[in-house]
């Protein structure tokens, strides 16, 4: 059953499009305004302001490149691995924020502070995306990839 999913070219393609577009779109707002993204990170009260600024400078680019990697199929496994790690870290940050009772914006897809507040729904969304990235990591489909040889 699992092997059938991992080698089904259409399921894998759908997951690649879902994860790829999600992260490409999520990165654009953050790349254009890293300072606001840094503030969104600081709101979680997990790391200092200067460190969050450094994270905000690089993280959106990792998201963009990972999104493009899984969309195109180039560096699919590397992209899926990084997405899984990032999503796990984001989910932990959201859970700790919820436990501490923080009423803050997620800073996930838009930097608008009035939308996309953190909540348990966000945790479940992330868990779904983590599952998708794990499936992509272990996928065996060689269809619709830009570099078939590397898989």
């Amino acid at each position: 059953m699992i092997r059938r999913i991992l080698s089904n070219q259409y399921i894998i393609l759908a997951l690649r499009i879902l994860l790829g577009l999600t992260f490409v779109f999520a990165s654009i707002d953050k790349i254009s305004d890293p300072s606001t993204f840094a503030k969104a990170i600081t709101n979680y009260k997990l790391i200092s302001g200067s460190l969050s600024l450094m994270v905000a400078t690089v993280l959106p680019w990792i998201e963009l490149l990972c999104g493009l990697a899984v969309l195109s199929g180039m560096y699919l496994r590397g992209g899926a691995l990084l997405l899984c790690l990032m999503l796990s870290a984001f989910t932990l940050a959201v859970i700790t924020g919820l436990i501490r009772g923080l009423d803050i914006s997620c800073g996930c897809f838009t930097l608008d502070p009035d939308v996309n507040k953190i909540g348990w729904q966000k945790v479940f969304e992330n868990l779904g995306l983590i599952l998708a990235s794990v499936v992509l990591f272990y996928s065996e489909s060689k269809h619709f990839l830009l570099n078939v040889d590397s898989n």
């Binding site: 400078t57 990792i62 990697a69 560096y75 699919l76 496994r77 590397g78 992209g79």
Partner: peptide, 22 residues
């Protein structure tokens, strides 16, 4: 091994792009 190599490349490219852009 392949995933680690690819992740390393993506992180290096992101560092370069992120700091160059800002």
């Amino acid at each position: 091994k392949q995933a680690t190599r690819e992740s390393g490349f993506i992180i290096c490219a992101a560092l370069l792009l992120g700091f160059s852009y800002t």
